[in-house]
Nucleic acid binder design. Structure first.
Lengths: 319, 319
DNA sequence: CACCGCTCATAACCCCAGCTTATGCCCTGA
DNA sequence: TCAGGGCATAAGCTGGGGTTATGAGCGGTG
């Protein structure tokens, strides 16, 4: 109660409906969330404290503070342990999503810091590096905790250059062809989707737009776009007129959700938004926007060995 | 680009299985991440500081601390502003996903604390309440900032009871039928997916399992499951033998990823995992696991008005 | 019955992360 | 040349979070 005034100043910022950092006042920090997950899993504050490497009073106090902060009772404490409240279960699920995002962040950062002593140097396209690789690295770390990975991200030419010059051991690219001088294996596919916000006309029309209309419509694209643009240009014959370019995929998504126009993005990038109905994929007749995801390595280097093989195996998943 | 500074300072980790809360040591807190997003968007530390309501030195110091913590140079500072590094752009994208998860968390919690003065009391099934409603609430808050929502989550019977007793103004259920005494409108559909980890035999077989094999296989289910179980039982004739029950959807996912067995989950719950290839959906021949998502309200209450109408509109999205 | 083991809570103390204000340097545009 | 925006540094303060020590319920057990 006493609803935390949160000083309603909403200064209608340009490219975003959300504002300020009141969030960090209303959302517990990662440590507290992890603690909550541990309690949910282990059924006891004390055990959770031990697993998290803190003292039991610290855990107790922390969870209590979190309950005060949220205004919700999360745990049913008893002399025999602690169970989640109904609301607590829901909160825990939302918390787990934050923690998972943090794990992705961490795995990405760990790789990105590019240590010299890395046993596995990876070069990846932006899309794969951003959305797929962190997950693989988390899995890899679970299996081979000692493997240190370094990551460099760029377009296909960048990946190829890194491999040829020996600055990377393994590469990942999306696109139509294997870059010259490299061997490769298809590890999966993704589709490029035309996405619009749910309120957009294309989301409501019975007849979806055809290739002609798509090509005539200004689109929001990521700058440079390499793989994305290549496939798009091939499918449409000539490149659609870009409405605006943004530095990152997520910035593009934010712009689309904000109503700036349609965009063409990998399904990898918009899975969550589609599920949450924040974006809608519009089918476009007669346009095949499927492309291969490939692992690549220097030509002739026959059997990828050691850590390279480990990661390659993890990346080779069905479909 | 995106080379990332070398910076060999690696603080000899304690060779532990990193299960604890080392994450919170390696991942900056929400405030810092929001600050980074603001800098990326506004192009200047000072402007970002102002938007976030802190002093410029605080912002500067905070970002600097973050760079030290991550071991990555995020910004190119110049006397005319600050731009993101190549690596910084990647990090910022990962950061944005954390912040978005936090917004979902916040929206959910705000609704869950159930204020007495709520202008809109919603009762929803677990799946809708967990995955869809927070997104709608974020959108609702952007459009009608004054609307205060309270949320109660349970199974279909629970939702129906809340509506009939006048404790809720609007309900959301997934399932085959409209509960007795309620009016409803279909707002969308979802499918139940059989999911397994990528290494599971079903993910590799050319011939997917049929209904018979599915029904004979122990599955991981959420306890009580209401909507999910109802549809599943209807499709399989008799209920599959549950291998284990978990208290929350996310716990089920974690178990599946960990190799505990196949599960049947809403596509809403696994969109991200599918995109990231942490889970694989297995098609099952001859089994239709599609179900309707419905908004429901007390019978006779003709035109949903005011806030009810607002939220109803937001929830009525294509497909 | 009394004891031990488990649970959670409270109390007193400590430490560092992060905020603030005040100031200085650098670059650019008028 | 000066004004102004942008970033960095230097002091001093506050509080959240951690620790150890201790107490209080409840349950199985000799």
């Amino acid at each position: 109660m006493s609803g935390a005034g949160a000083h309603g100043g909403s200064p209608a910022s340009p490219a975003g409906p959300e504002n300020g950092l009141g969030l960090s006042r209303r959302v517990p920090d990662l440590g507290a969330l992890q603690l909550l997950l541990a309690v949910a899993r282990l059924g006891s504050l004390g055990r959770a404290a031990r697993e998290c490497g803190v003292s039991q009073p610290a855990a107790s106090s922390r969870v209590r503070a979190m309950e005060r902060q949220l205004g919700i009772a999360l745990l049913e404490r008893s002399p025999r342990g602690s169970r989640l409240t109904g609301a607590g279960a829901l909160v825990t699920d939302w918390a787990r999503r934050i923690v998972e995002s943090a794990e992705v962040f961490d795995a990405g950062v760990q790789a990105l810091r590019g240590r010299r002593d890395s046993r596995l140097r990876v070069a990846a396209s932006m899309t794969i590096g951003e959305y797929l690789l962190p997950g693989w690295l988390i899995a890899l770390r679970a299996r081979h905790p000692d493997t240190v990975v370094s990551l460099a991200a760029g377009n296909s030419a960048f990946v190829a250059e890194r491999l040829r010059s020996g600055e990377a051991d393994l590469g990942f690219v999306e696109g139509l062809t294997v870059p010259q001088g490299l061997d490769g294996a298809v590890i999966g596919h993704d589709r490029l989707l035309v996405v619009v916000p749910p309120a957009h006309p294309w989301a409501r029309r019975r007849r979806p737009p055809d290739a002609r209309e798509l090509a005539a419509t200004p689109l929001i694209l990521r700058e440079e776009g390499s793989g994305t643009r290549e496939v798009l240009a091939g499918a449409l014959g000539e490149l659609a007129v870009p409405l605006h370019e943004f530095p990152s995929t997520t910035a593009v998504k934010a712009a689309v959700i904000g109503g700036a126009g349609p965009a063409v993005l990998s399904e990898l990038a918009v899975g969550e938004e589609l599920a949450a109905r924040r974006l809608v994929a519009v089918p476009v007749e007669g346009v095949a926007l499927r492309r291969a995801l490939r692992a690549v390595w220097p030509k002739g280097q026959r059997p990828p060995a050691g850590p390279v093989r480990d990661l390659l195996g993890l990346s080779r998943l069905r479909r």
